[in-house]
Design a binder for these strands. Structure first.
Length: 398
RNA sequence: CGGGGCGUAGCGCAGCCUGGUAGCGCACAUCGUUCGGGACGAUGGGGUCGGAGGUUCGAAUCCUCUCGCCCCGACCA
């Protein structure tokens, strides 16, 4: 698609020779899918059609950023074709909600669901929905998108079908994607100076157990090892991803290492704990260690994981709220985007949007689906009436 | 493509201005002491100073060329 032409990577040589016909590396698969759909779709009975794939795509950006903008990235992209606009739009909204649910309930990253403005919309789309997250530096990250393509792509690729009345009609298509950028979102929405903080549902290791005790106290170590084995076994049976770090290294060094890796919960068990019938539990968000009786430890940890998720989510959400302000003047907008998001009325004029970006580095991240009504309020920039039902979210973005 | 910066031990850096044949921290090895928040001591191993050419009695250091990397800006999920 021409909207992508500047970022297309083109293969000119292969097999040691120059190709007669250059090969474009897909930046997204709309064209591939469009051609297939044109062949597959004959009748309204063939619809709706949904095709999902995980693949790598290449976009030749001028500047890359680890996880957030890489030349090549893995993503999931879905493409659907429908007989009616209503059905297609339902799909678009449904997938946005799937992404939002994943972000919030699995990654613990709070997101704002919204619509992109004309200027930020996917090339060729009638409507682009987005989930926008705030990173710890106050910048926005578009974390997933869902597009209603109208009949634009159907017309371009000739995706036609016979409807119930045996009349030819163009399909309404959608596409939606979520990429490895989400990993960046998790890192940058939760991480702190000590390293990663991983959401329990996605953490490869949810609980790390560190056996304590002196290396020359063989009897003590054996007692501890037996208890740690028992505990780890029980946790695994309870469905917890647990790792036992029995390396011969200083405990403090192990603590820092696992904290850096973002493991949500840590258990320390040593001879003293065995004598007391307890273990020390510490989580990645807190500073205190809690002594928990050994006989209730598994249940404690099993419950602590979802609780940790909730706290992580709440923390990110509070952070975002504290860095979100509502602006009524341009000065407030300018000041607000220095720290985070700004909720304000906008006239919808792409020219105004460009001018604002020029002056502030901030863009309209989205027009929130559920937001503050803009009714009766003037544009922060032009003073004209709002171009949308709701006030928009301004922010600097990755 | 503009603007800045950096290449010296596995990693992070100093030394360069003012030439005299390379040093610090971490890591590594051995031994001992440690062991519930990144241990300590002693001893030891390890470097074509990004590359090429030049100046000089002598170049990590000065000159010329060259290669590579990073950051900022423009593009963008």
């Amino acid at each position: 698609m021409e909207g992508f032409s500047p970022e297309l990577a083109v293969v000119t040589h292969a097999g040691g020779v120059e190709l007669e016909e250059p090969l474009a590396i897909r930046p997204t698969s709309e064209t591939v899918v469009g051609e297939l759909y044109a062949k597959w779709v004959q009748s309204y009975r063939d619809l709706p059609l949904l095709y999902n794939q995980w693949c790598n795509v290449v976009r030749w950006e001028m500047r890359t950023r680890p996880f957030l903008r890489t030349t090549e990235f893995l993503w999931q992209e879905g493409h659907t074709a429908h007989a009616t606009e209503e059905e297609a739009r339902f799909e678009v909204r449904q997938m946005l909600d799937v992404y939002a649910t994943f972000a919030e309930e699995f990654a613990a990253v709070p997101v704002i669901r919204g619509e992109k403005t004309e200027g930020e919309r996917f090339a060729g789309a009638v409507q682009t929905l987005t989930i926008e997250a705030m990173m710890r530096d106050g910048k926005a990250l578009q974390s997933g998108t869902s597009h209603y393509l109208g009949q634009n792509f159907a017309k371009a690729f000739d995706i036609k079908f016979n409807d119930v009345n045996n009349e030819q009609a163009f399909a309404h298509t959608t596409s939606w994607g979520l990429s490895t950028r989400m990993i960046g979102a998790i890192i940058m929405a939760h991480g702190d100076d000590a390293g990663l903080i991983l959401p329990p549902k996605l953490a490869p290791t949810q609980v790390v157990v560190v056996p304590m005790g002196r290396s020359n106290d063989e009897a003590g170590r054996a007692r501890v090892a037996a208890e740690v084995d028992r505990l780890a076994g029980e946790l695994r049976r309870a469905g917890v991803r647990v790792h036992v770090d029995a390396r011969d290294a200083n405990p403090g060094a192990k603590f820092y290492e696992w904290e850096q890796k973002g493991v949500p919960l840590r258990v320390e068990i040593g001879p003293k704990d065995l004598d007391a019938g307890t273990a020390l539990v510490k989580d990645r968000l807190g500073t205190d260690k809690t002594a928990v009786p050994l006989d209730g430890l598994v249940a404690y940890l099993v419950e602590a994981l979802p609780a940790f998720h909730d706290r992580l989510y709440a923390r990110a959400r509070t952070f975002r709220e504290e860095r979100t302000v509502e602006a009524h003047t341009f000065e407030e907008l300018v000041a607000g985007v220095e720290r985070g998001f700004v909720i304000a009325t906008h006239c919808g004029d792409p020219e105004s949007e460009r001018a604002i970006q020029e002056a502030t580095k901030a863009t309209v991240r989205c027009i929130p689906l559920e937001g503050v009504s803009a009714e009766g309020t003037p544009c922060v920039h032009t003073g004209r009436p709002s171009g949308y039902a709701n006030k928009v979210v301004f922010g600097r973005a990755y």
